[in-house]
Design a protein around this nucleic acid. Structure first.
Lengths: 195, 195, 195, 195
DNA sequence: AATGAATGAGGCTTCATTCAT
DNA sequence: GATGAATGAAGCCTCATTCAT
């Protein structure tokens, strides 16, 4: 992969992101992406082979950003890590709202073309929650028998849905307020489990 | 509205559901819907005026099914109502998986055309959770200061995400197992709040 | 099939013929055909489903013209029928030179898409020769052992190749002169076989 | 012309032949030819200047093979030469069926681009027949007045069409059987002319 | 109330060609 | 001599919509 080619791919990813944000998923056309990237339409086909392949690669690119942000947030001992993780999830959704909506919307659709990518989105995100819950259990802070797989997806979805509601209904509200509500619920759970 | 016309509309809704399930959202064309319904394409336009209008009406039709199922499940005193509500959410997703994916996927997209419907989906579902939490608070089972709006969407998303993961990764697992995990978390919260 | 639809198909066939004649096979585009027919591009797709299907149907339409002309010419007792048949072949090639070149060129290409049609072209034409040779044999005018299948295709190809050379190199030469040369060869064969 | 360059050209001819055989004329793209030849696409342009030029040179290359095979077969006194010539024609078509179909199909199309080449194909082949018929006449074995130009193209087309039918319908049949049928017709003509 | 033939804007894709390296 | 990334004109095809019947 030549450096020139790699630069071209990055420009196309960025242009795709901007198009999705500006015109929504339905407004994404190869024509517009190429134009925004300042490239010829054929270049998309030369580099990715087709619209689906471009989109699939773009989603992976987006997932990697998402996953990197989550991993960065989830540092420290379990309880702090959970707090940081949820804050990172809220931050990502606030900063990259369009990308987030796209990733999450696609991750639940039934779509053969991007199935692998969709699965990857969920795994990247949910597994971090599950692993933290396992760490809590390993520390002895949890009654036996909890299915941390289900609980991990539950906590992920909890923050996700609250975040999207926040962006839709009260985007001016400070992130920390939403974070506080979610952490109160999480702390409730941790406390009850420890008891 | 004549009975004949109403019957035609029902056939189109059913055909739309089947098309969405069979070919995904991208595979939904007026042609295919009409063919599956055994009607001419013009009939769709005669009855709905356009594809967006058909789709919007169809989504409402789906939301009403969803909302009816949730309301039916959320009966009894708050804790039992929460349990029933979550079970109903799991049941709906299990029984009408394709419709559920569609509703939820659309409800988070940014799409001018069906915005009102999307909002309605969330309100129908999330408000039931919020109202139940308010009822718990009114009974004195909750420490002060919880934003039940955020918490309601959190609980809704918790069950939702766990349900979709369940259908995707382990569809043969009994519903009650997933329900038990979720209720353990909910009970943890209720207990910690009461304490 | 409504009368309107049938009329549309005829217009498209005629336009295709004119396009092939005017711009060659490579100049045939759906756009141009539709424009020449005075129809919208989509109409081609509504009526035929695609370019290949249109072309395949068009070739059949052309073959039917060719076959009708050959059958009409091949009347009377065997020797006169052979003469009439060869004259008809020359006439068709002279009158519909572009269509003839197309039919014959395509009939020998290896092309999956129109294979059935290509076979049909050859059968329609060659079988008439073979049947006439069989009739000669039945009349006792032939020594035993001739494979009339091979001989039929040989006579067909004899007239065909001579005709195309005629059109290419000496289009002003009267048809009857070419016909006379070919009939001299055919008569040579018939005489030698009778002897 | 350096040896390296000549080797490159040969590889491109061979790759073109393989592509035509494998994917048909419509499947021939510069991309695929270059890939099959193990060369970069730009190399085609460096060596030939364009696709048409490559193709034209390729056809000449093919014609030369065809002509060499025919000339080699047409040896000896006229009647034996005719027999050898027809056998050589059958052999070429049997051995290089795809190339033969391509050459013949193209030779009858109306195509400005390769017109010179197409003409050359026919001349190379048909003239050998015409010259042999002239030789027969010179030996006194022919009644006066036969147009050996038309008759030559007739004999060429006779063998050609029979050969392609043979390859299509009964490829397992021995070449000599087809050759025998054709020679019976040719001998019929020679005998009748001598008589 | 329903039909279905026709439409045409809009999208995706192919591929011969160019050119800087 | 050869390369391969980039180009963009040109084609094919889809599909929501219209309208005469």
């Amino acid at each position: 992969m030549s450096a020139r080619r790699e630069a071209t791919r990055q420009r196309l990813f960025q242009a795709t992101l901007e198009e999705v944000s500006a015109h929504g998923l339905d407004g994404v056309t190869v024509d517009r992406i190429a134009e925004r990237a300042g490239l010829a339409k054929g270049t998309v086909y030369y580099n990715f082979g087709g619209k689906n392949e471009l989109f699939s690669a773009f989603l992976e690119w987006g997932v990697d950003r998402f996953a990197a942000m989550l991993r960065e947030g989830a540092a420290g001992p379990p309880r702090e890590a959970l707090s940081g993780l949820i804050r990172a999830e809220l931050q990502f959704i606030a900063e990259y709202e369009d990308l987030a909506r796209l990733l999450l919307s696609e991750s639940w659709r039934t779509n053969q073309a991007w199935e692998a990518t969709a699965l990857r989105i969920r795994r990247q995100a949910i597994d971090v929650f599950t692993e933290l819950l396992d760490a809590v259990r390993a520390e002895g802070g949890m009654r036996p028998g909890l299915d941390t797989g289900v609980a991990g997806s539950a906590l992920f979805g909890m923050a996700l849905t609250a975040a999207l509601e926040w962006r839709t209904l009260a985007p001016d509200r400070p992130l920390e307020e939403v974070h506080a509500v979610l952490m109160r619920l999480v702390d409730d759970i941790l406390r009850a489990e420890r008891a």
